[in-house]
Write a protein that binds this DNA or RNA. Structure first.
Length: 435
RNA sequence: GCUGUGAUGGUGCAGUGGUUAGCACAGCAGGUUGUGGUCCUGCUAGCCCGGGUUCGAUUCCCGGUCACGGCCCCA
């Protein structure tokens, strides 16, 4: 190969694109059913947008560049910040709450491997201008319905609440202030990793066991009562636990249950801007890159002067990883179909046999006008080869028109699966009726 | 960022320090001038890139590139 595709990028052939479009359509359908509307933002943005959100350190992982007027730009590494910018730029006066969905490629300069690409695709949803347990439940419910719709079977939803952690850690005397990272943030990071030795340096030793007990809680919403007891032994009183309880109850009503649900109060998502409920969806069989979705309640709009709309709630779905999981699942089950409905398109293959293809063009047009997908055999080959071609392009039926047919005003419609063939009149209506 | 494995037609695999580098599938053409997914024949097409060792390297060595895996990280 003379010119190679850049590292971490992929080409998508027609077969793959059919699959990807089917998945995108399926996700979009879920979004619409929840009242979310699609938006789109630029592939590149001002570098400032992402340094403001994630700090100057992110530049190392960006495809950042200067344009010919010396502006600092970057390919977008994610889509939440651009959507928030768009809300601030364009949608200040639009009725709230906003329910937005998006899909597109993002770029990160890092080591690529399976499930981790330098150009990758993210689907996501954000609700803006509404907060509280019901808004959070809606977002999680949308994520769950999406995954159910894909037909993926083996995955786990993990839900936590940064607010609870925050209440505990400030209650234990840790500071909420500080650059670049407050004590609370450092502690959350350690807690998320399970680094107890690190935590002992920040927190009185007698408080470590209850925290461990909290981290070890394993189960569904029933663990909330146990968590409540632990919090009271720590002398912490807060509203967050009750909010999480309400959120889980609402979720139970609003969405089909996930294959596995774990309430895990130490999920911190490693992000500084999350404020409330956080959640992740994990597919263990994917290995190291098994997180296929993540989100929660976060504060970002204050960066754009819209603090009154914070916190928002949303999630990003790793489009490529969901596909990998579906591919692995289909392979394990020996199933042909990877994304539901990916092969729903069944064109009619029109075969002009021993006649010029120009003889059938107006018929082809009228078939298409009537909503039929049509592919025309433009190569003159033997009838047998043409039928093979028709099969190869995914046609369900072949329409054979030869010299005798032109004379008699008939044609033959062959079902390529059954091999059955019927003769009918050479007009669009009769042909469509015989399919 | 660290580390392991690998790279041969479009795909999947053989193989070799030395003459034409094989096989299967796919593609194209024909065997069959109105019925396919069977069979037969032919054709197209390849040793990732750069350097080194050597009379000679696709093969051995080094570097790069890319892919896959394990840590780190993951807005």
């Amino acid at each position: 190969m003379m010119v190679q595709r850049p590292r971490g990028t992929r080409d998508f052939t027609p077969i793959e694109m059919k699959r990807r479009l089917a998945l995108e359509n399926l996700l979009e359908k879920c979004s619409r059913s929840f009242g979310y509307s699609r938006v789109q933002t630029p592939i590149f943005e001002s570098l400032d947008l992402f340094t403001a959100k994630s700090g100057p350190g992110v530049v190392d992982q960006l495809y950042a560049f200067k344009d010919k007027s010396d502006r600092d730009l970057t390919l977008r590494p994610e889509l939440t910040a651009p959507v928030m910018r768009m809300v601030a730029d364009e949608m200040r006066v639009v009725t709230k709450p906003l329910r937005l969905s998006y899909f597109g490629q993002c770029f990160r300069y890092e080591e690529s491997k399976k499930g981790r690409y330098r150009e990758f695709f993210q689907y996501g949803a954000e609700s803006i201008g509404i907060k509280g347990p019901l808004a959070e439940a809606e977002i999680v419910a949308l994520a769950l319905e999406m995954l159910h719709a894909t037909g993926l079977e083996d995955w786990e939803l993990r839900i936590g609440h940064v607010g609870i952690l925050h209440e505990i850690l400030t209650g234990l005397g840790l500071s909420d202030e500080g650059e670049p990272e407050s004590e609370v943030q450092s502690a959350m990071r350690l807690l998320d990793k399970g680094d107890w030795q690190g935590l002992e340096k920040m927190i009185p030793a007698e408080n470590i066991p209850p925290l461990q007990e909290l981290a070890d809680l394993d189960g569904g919403s029933e663990i909330l009562s146990a968590a409540e007891k632990i919090l009271s032994t720590l002398g912490i009183e807060g509203n967050s636990l009750e909010e999480l309880r309400e959120m889980l109850a609402a979720l139970n009503d609003l969405a089909t249950a996930p294959p596995s649900l774990k309430v895990d109060l130490t999920v911190a998502r490693g992000l500084d801007y999350y404020t409330g409920m956080v959640f992740e969806i994990q597919v263990d069989s994917l290995g190291g890159e098994g997180q296929i979705l993540g989100g929660g309640s976060y504060r970002l709009l204050h960066l754009f002067g819209l603090a009154d709309l914070d916190p928002c709630c949303g999630f990003g779905l790793g489009f490529d990883r969901v596909l990998l999981a579906l591919e692995a699942q289909a392979a394990a089950k020996g199933s042909e179909e990877i994304v539901p409905g990916e092969n729903s398109s069944n064109p009619l293959a029109v075969i002009p046999f021993k006649i010029p293809a120009s003889e059938v063009l107006s018929l082809v047009k009228s078939l298409r006008v009537n909503g039929q997908e049509v592919v025309v055999e433009l190569k003159s080959r033997g009838l047998g080869k043409s039928l093979s071609w028709a099969d190869a392009v995914g046609a369900s039926h072949a329409l054979i028109i030869g010299p005798k047919d032109l004379e008699s005003g008939t044609c033959n419609v062959k079902n390529l699966q059954s091999g059955q063939q019927v003769e009918c009149n050479l007009d669009a209506e009769a042909i469509l009726a015989s399919l």
